[in-house]
Write a protein that binds this DNA or RNA. Structure first.
Length: 305
DNA sequence: CTCCAGGAACTCC
DNA sequence: GGAGTTCATGGA
C-alpha cells in the first residue's frame, strides 16, 4: 500500500493529505457499524467527510476519490495514531482476494466487491468493549445516543481550534470516551440514569473487572487463540460471544474474530445453507472477521439505507 | 397495540 | 444441554 503524505494548513486548520489510496471509502468505513462516534459532516467541501473523536482527539476524515485529508492532525499524529487507526498499511485488495480464494462463494465475492472500501478500524480496546456491551439488543442510532450521553457525562473536554471545530458534526460532542475510573465512579445508578437500561450493571462490571485486573487486556492482546480471547472477555457479565467478537475485531486487531448477530444469522440462512444460523468464522479463514464485515455490510445496506 | 434492535442471563425441562 | 423468557428503551 504505497501512498504519499503532505502536511498543510487549509482555512486555518492543520491537516495531512494522503494521496494514492485504494480500497478506502470513509463512507463505508464509518457507516458499517464498527464505530459509533463518527458522523457525516454536513456542508463539507469534500465529496465525503466524517468527523468524530478517537484516542481523546477530535479529527475529521475528508475524502475525494483516492485522496484523504485528515483535519486536526499533523504528520506526527498521523504517523503515530491515524495511520494505524485507519489500518492504512494493510493491502485490502490482497486481503479480499485471499478471503474469496479461501471460501469460494458468489455471495461473498459480491459482498467483498460491494464493500471494497471498508477497513477495520483499530479502535481503543476499552472503548470497543464498553461500546459493544451497550450495543446488545439495541439499534445503532440509540447505541450512538447512549455513548454520546456517556461521553458528555464523564469524558474529558477536548479543545479544538475554531477552524477545526467547523468540521465537527453537531451529533458528536468534543469529549473523549470515559476512562474506566470515570465509568466506575458513576456507579450502576449513574449508568442507569443515562438510559442504558439493563446494560448498566454490565458496563459497571466491565469497568470494575478492568480496574481490578481480573480482565487483563494485555493477556487478551497476547492471546494467539481468538477462541480463548473470547472466553477471557466472556468473564464479564453481559459479554457473550457476539460482543466479545466485536470487541476483539475492532479493538484488539483479532481479524479472525467473527461476530454473529441477527444479520449474520440471516446471511447464514440465506446464502450458506450448510451452516445456517450457526454460521461461524471457522470456515472463513484467517480474515474471517473482515469477511464477516463484508457480508454484514452487504446484507444490511445493499438496496439503500 | 405489537415488534424489533450488531444479545446475554436466567429459568425451565 | 437446548428452547423459551426476560431484560430497558425508543422508534416504526
Amino acid at each position: 500500500m504505497k501512498y504519499t503524505l503532505s502536511e498543510a494548513v487549509i482555512d486555518g486548520c492543520e491537516c495531512v493529505t494522503v494521496e494514492g489510496l485504494t480500497h478506502f471509502d470513509v463512507g463505508q468505513i464509518f457507516d458499517c457499524g464498527q464505530c459509533f462516534r463518527f458522523e457525516a459532516v454536513e456542508g463539507t467541501t469534500h465529496e465525503k467527510e466524517f468527523s468524530g473523536v478517537a484516542f481523546g482527539r477530535f479529527v475529521s476524515f475528508a475524502q475525494d476519490k483516492d485522496s484523504l485529508t485528515v483535519y486536526g492532525s499533523n504528520l506526527n499524529d498521523f504517523e503515530s495514531i491515524w495511520k494505524r487507526y485507519l489500518d492504512l498499511d494493510r493491502d485490502y485488495g490482497a486481503v479480499a482476494q485471499s478471503i474469496c480464494d479461501f471460501k469460494q462463494s458468489d455471495v461473498l465475492t459480491a459482498a467483498a466487491e460491494y464493500g471494497q472500501g471498508i477497513r477495520i478500524l483499530s479502535q481503543d480496546p476499552f472503548e470497543s468493549v464498553i461500546s459493544f456491551v451497550i450495543s446488545q439488543n439495541n439499534n445503532i442510532p440509540r447505541i450512538k445516543k447512549i455513548i454520546e450521553a456517556l461521553c458528555l457525562r464523564c469524558g474529558d473536554k477536548i479543545e479544538a481550534s475554531p477552524a477545526l471545530a467547523k468540521h465537527a458534526s453537531p451529533a458528536c460532542s468534543l469529549c473523549s470516551f470515559p476512562t474506566a475510573e470515570a465509568i466506575y465512579a458513576l456507579g450502576v445508578d449513574g449508568l442507569f440514569a443515562l438510559k442504558t437500561g439493563f446494560r448498566a450493571k454490565y458496563i459497571y462490571d466491565a469497568a470494575e473487572k478492568f480496574l481490578d485486573g481480573s480482565l487483563s487486556f494485555e493477556k487478551i492482546k497476547a492471546e494467539r487463540d481468538t477462541c480463548r480471547a473470547v472466553e477471557l472477555l466472556c468473564e464479564v457479565k453481559g459479554i457473550g460471544p457476539k460482543v466479545a467478537s466485536c470487541a476483539l475485531l475492532f479493538g484488539f486487531n483479532k481479524y479472525d474474530a467473527f461476530p454473529v448477530d441477527v444479520w449474520m444469522k440471516k446471511v447464514g440462512e440465506k446464502y450458506f445453507p450448510d451452516e445456517g444460523a450457526s454460521i461461524s468464522g471457522s470456515s472463513f479463514g484467517e480474515y474471517a472477521g473482515i469477511a464477516q464485515q463484508y457480508l454484514f455490510y452487504y446484507e444490511r445496506y445493499k438496496g439503500g439505507e
